[in-house]
Each structure stands twice: as C-alpha cells, then as structure tokens.
C-alpha cells in the first residue's frame, strides 16, 4: 500500500480564501476551540484531522455559521471570507451559507425527488431565471457531483431511494448547485463503504479545480490521499498546520507525530 505517499507536485501557492484569527468557541461552559488561527486557500483541499472530540467538526461548522442553530454555542475571534468578517452583525448567515456550502457526515437527501433535491438551493436563492435555466443548473450540478449518468433517467424518483454513496454524491451536487465559493465537508465518507468512498474521494479531487474544499476526516489515509494542506487538532487546539506531505512525513510537533504513528487517538 502506498497510501501515505503524497503527491507533492500538486502543492502550489494559492490565494487565501478564508482566514480564522484567534477563534474561540464555547459550548455553554465548555471551551471547545482554543485560539485557532488558520488560512484556507482557494482551489485547495484542506483536511482537518485529529482524534474524536478534538473540535475539528465544531470548527468546520463555524466557517459557515452552522453553529448559530445551536443556542448555547458562542464564537469569538474573526473568521474572514475574502477579507470580510462573516460574524459581522450585518452579515446574513443565509447569504453566507449560499457561498460556503456544506456536506454532512450522514447523507441527508430531502424526502423529495432527485431533481427537487438539487433544485432546492437555486430555487430559494433565486438563481434560475426560468425552468430551462433551472434544468441546466441541475444537470450541471449533477455532472459535477459525478452522479449524472446514474440518475439522469430517474430525476423524478425520490432521493432517499439511492444507495449510500449515490446519496452522498447527490448531497455534494446539491451543495454545488448554489455556486458556492467554499465547500465544507464533515466526514463525508464515514457512512460509506470503500467503493463509494473511493468515488467520493475522486470527486473531491475534481472539485478542487473550481472550489476551495475543507474536509474533516478521522482517516489519516484519506487526508493524505485527497488534501494538499492538513491541520491537526488536539483537545481544541490547532497543533500543527502545513502542507500535507510535511505533516505526514516530517511533523514538527511531537503530538502530531504520536497521532500519525497511532499512539494517540
């Protein structure tokens, strides 16, 4: 197995898309994220790794303010998207989430048809001028989600009837349909079998051409396979952040090394 080999060639400097500065997150009395600084580049896959409960998913959910839906959650510090603070009072989280899309751990298609699942985002954001326009968006998104060929003949059948891997790719297609700038993925393969995982990973690599992708994963192999940048979280701290190759072959922090070699987590 050469899972740990990293394609160094793909790492090239990109423009900063999102930046987190001194971010702290509290759940009630629990201090979940401690003083995290990270820069997420455009057209790059950034992976967040770390043991369970280290705060990587929590941090990911801060990036499009999904934590707003949890009453007891409080965020301090700045998170900038293209230089604009997304926690600014004037920012509408609804508009933000159209630009920072999200794919979840468990595939969660709506109990609607495949077409309506994908068309949902464009419809609520008013992205399509007419039916033909919408049809085109749906087709383009499904193609980008690498699922078009499998579902093009049954767009009106329910999305819940697809297999797990297909459902997850449908959810990715649904997320890209709103033309986001950043795509957040919270352990998108943890509920999938190895074949479906491979398909989704391949898709993630393709998506890098158009979007900035952030993926949370607890599989180090997956991080090594799909990402160019990796951030290692431990107990709410960002321990180390750098090019994936460096993190996996030559980590600076002893905690990162312990984790990579399987001593913690």
């Amino acid at each position: 197995m050469n899972d740990m080999t990293v394609m160094d060639s793909t790492v090239e400097a990109q423009r900063t898309k999102m930046a987190a500065q001194n971010v702290n997150v509290y759940y009630g009395d629990t201090h979940a994220i401690k003083d995290v600084n990270v820069e997420i580049e455009d057209k790059t896959v950034t992976a967040f790794i770390g043991p369970s409960g280290c705060g990587k998913s929590t941090f990911l959910r801060c990036l499009n303010r999904m934590n707003d839906t949890i009453d007891i959650c409080r965020v301090t510090g700045d998170i900038l998207l293209e230089g604009e603070d997304i926690y600014d009072k004037r920012v509408d989280p609804v508009q933000l989430r159209a630009q920072v899309g999200m794919v979840f751990q468990k595939p969660n298609p709506f109990p609607k048809s495949i077409y309506d699942n994908v068309a949902y985002g464009p419809r609520i954001h008013g992205l399509a001028k007419n039916k033909a326009d919408l049809d085109e968006i749906v087709e383009r998104s499904l193609r980008r989600g690498a699922i078009w060929d499998e579902v093009k003949d049954r767009l009106q059948s329910p999305g819940t009837g697809l297999s797990g891997g297909q459902q997850q790719r449908l959810c990715i297609a649904r997320a890209v349909a709103t033309e986001p700038e950043v795509l957040l993925m919270d352990e998108p393969c943890s509920a999938l079998d190895p074949i479906a995982t491979a398909q989704v990973e391949e898709l993630i690599d393709e998506l890098r051409e158009s979007y900035s992708v952030v993926i949370v994963t607890h599989s180090m192999q997956q991080a090594a396979r799909v990402s160019q940048k990796t951030a290692f979280f431990h107990l709410g701290n960002l321990v180390e952040f750098g090019p994936t190759g460096q993190i996996f072959t030559n980590p600076e922090d002893p905690r990162t090394e312990s984790y990579i070699t399987g001593r913690i987590g």
């Binding site: 499009n64 839906t69 989430r97 794919v103 979840f104 298609p109 709506f110 985002g121 609520i124």
Partner: peptide, 27 residues
C-alpha cells in the same frame, strides 16, 4: 423529523421558514 434534514437545508443557505415549509413539513 431528523435534525440532519434541517442541517442539510441550513447548510444550503435556506432560512428557517424555508426549511420548515419546504423540508420539515413535507417530510
């Protein structure tokens, strides 16, 4: 109705009422 359903909708930038009317109630 599972929370994942609502999260999926919020993640796409739907407002709460849009989520309720178009996802939660149909489900």
């Amino acid at each position: 109705v599972p929370q994942a359903m609502r999260d999926g909708s919020y993640g796409l930038g739907a407002t709460q009422s849009e989520t309720i009317r178009q996802v939660v109630i149909p489900a």
